[in-house]
Amino acid sequence: MSDPPPIRILLAKLGFDGHDRGLKVIARTLRDAGFEVIYLGLRQTAGSVVIAAEQEDVAVIGISMHNGGHLTLGPMMVRAVADAGLEIPVVIGGIVPAEDVPTLREHGIFAVLGPGTALETVVATIHAAAATHDGMVG
């Protein structure tokens, strides 16, 4: 009973973006690292992600982006989380040019995991993100 419960993370893709292979690899990697991964899959909206994050009580929201929409959808996701009164860090993975990373960070994205990120780095980043999430009751 005293073991810390598994960390819950939500993984999704936003909008019109069908490239989910990378996200599936991440889902398996995180499962193998002991996370409980709530996999929402394709064609989500910022609103549907927020609803799921509330119901599932996740510590981290992971968004995969392969359609060049990250500068619009990334900040939109962070805003939707904040508007709902949630304090859940948002991590973006996928195809994000390096020069866009500072902009996303300024908009409150916790971290950006671009192409070639080592899976160990992914796990460490999600752990770091989860550590910023407010804790459990009791």
Binding site: R28, R31, G34, F35, E36, Y39, R43, S48, A52
Partner: peptide
């Protein structure tokens, strides 16, 4: 590892966001 992939919400996209419905994996 104690980890898990919980994918049941994928099939509940239509109803999972309705205000009358609460889904927990």
């Amino acid at each position: 590892t104690g980890g898990a992939i919980l994918g049941d919400r994928i099939r509940m996209q239509g109803v999972g966001s309705r205000p009358e419905v609460f889904v927990r994996s």
